[in-house]
Design a protein around this nucleic acid. Structure first.
Lengths: 233, 233
DNA sequence: TCAAGGCAGATTGTCGACAATATGTAGCAA
DNA sequence: TTGCTACATATTGTCGACAATCTGCCTTGA
């Protein structure tokens, strides 16, 4: 089940439906990265005319999943190590800020809910150890809730609507699940505790460190992949 | 002359042209904040059909100048003190990051050019003192160049293409030029010096302080405006 | 052989019309 | 009078067709 944007309007129009389908297809690699997008073909495939399809394409460009050139059409973005690092640099800053603001603005009940959710995940995780469920769904949910708790509309929009589809795309396609599952629990717990204590500065620092650790983890994996590739050639 | 996005494709299509015109109209208050947007009316006004107009509207939504609701149409955003502060909170983080990255990635010649440009502005400014030209054009140009110097595509896109039109809109419509002109010179100079010295940490700090000072300046003006309003009633 | 130019096909940009949905108004019942 | 319903109007969403532009291939000439 795909995680859909929290600031999402209930999908009513044809362009909404098509957008969701193409988003999923791109994120999961069903439409390969770097491939050209043919408007007539996609329109047939989803049984709509080109008008709502182009509306959907405009929104896909907004969340950086495709790139369009006038009179030349659209291509699915190519994933690159540099792009991934750029993305994580941004996340460090933005989610750090989100934590600081959440410590000020997140309502008490939202903090409690998130805290309870973490405990719940921890228990269900201990049962079937190793399952990478948490890293996928739970991790994103955790980050989403804190971002929403910041109550900064621009920040929420940029992170949830524009950048997080890319994060998911990188995770799925590069298989960046990582062995950090158990450590992520503790880090998440520490972050929400800081927010509960209304210690914005600490929450900020912990979140930066949390994402920074992911980034370094990714850098290591990328290095390994490159080495394997070099050896095999 | 409007400052156009540095990552702009040369305006070729009708939707590009319409986008630029509506952007200007909204930023300068020609189309009032909060007003409803009628597709048929705008289409007639700019002599295009609704197809390219809707394409333009999609991009206006992207840079937060309008808000759309399915089946209900689009409205120009309403400006609010909270919105302005949210925007500046974001800018502090993002442009701080931009400075840190620019210190690493900005080519030497770009640093020199920007430094020279600052001196040039300083001289022409001293001639016609008080003119708010610098604050408008020069200031934005300065920030743009540093952002571009970061070489982080996502960061550039978010700041230059999505947030800066709003910044301009707030400045124009709330008349936030401020008396900080001369001080901004010194701050800009210090920032570019830090970047030239490849001292990312310092450049980051100085930029956050620079934008933070603007934010506080704005908060004061907002307070004054409220007081005057309260008194006059 | 190779480069420049042009032609054919396909793709994107734009248009006008129709269908689906929302908004405002008048009439009716409590 | 107040609140609801039904209708008329206007606006948005979608469609199919045409115009403008690009891409690849072929011809042509040096």
């Amino acid at each position: 089940m795909p995680i859909q944007s929290p600031v999402w309007r209930s999908p009513i129009t044809a362009s909404d439906r098509v957008l969701l389908e193409i988003q999923r297809a791109i994120v999961e690699g069903d439409i390969p990265a770097g491939s050209k997008i043919s408007e007539p073909e996609l329109a047939r495939r989803f049984n709509v005319s080109r008008a709502p399809l182009r509306e959907a394409l405009a929104r896909l460009e907004r969340c950086h999943l495709i790139e369009r050139t006038p009179n030349a059409g659209a291509r699915v973005v190519k994933l690159s190590p540099e792009g991934l690092l750029s993305l994580y640099q941004l996340r460090e800053e933005l989610e750090g800020l989100a934590c600081r603001l959440a410590a000020e603005n997140m309502p008490e009940h939202e903090v409690d809910e998130l805290s309870a959710l973490l405990d719940q995940h921890l228990n269900s995780q201990r049962v079937r150890e190793g399952e990478s469920y948490y890293q996928e769904e739970g991790d994103l949910d955790f980050h989403y809730r804190i971002i929403l708790g910041s109550k900064n509309a621009y920040l929420i929009n940029i992170l949830c609507d524009e950048l997080y589809f890319l994060v998911r795309m990188y995770r799925v396609q590069l298989g960046m699940n990582g062995p950090r599952v158990s450590r992520a629990f503790d880090e998440h717990k520490a972050i929400i505790t800081a927010i509960a204590n209304r210690d914005g500065e600490l929450a900020d620092l912990l979140m930066r460190r949390h994402i920074g650790a992911s980034r370094k983890n990714i850098e290591i994996q990328l290095l390994q992949m490159r080495n394997e590739h070099d050896i095999s050639n």
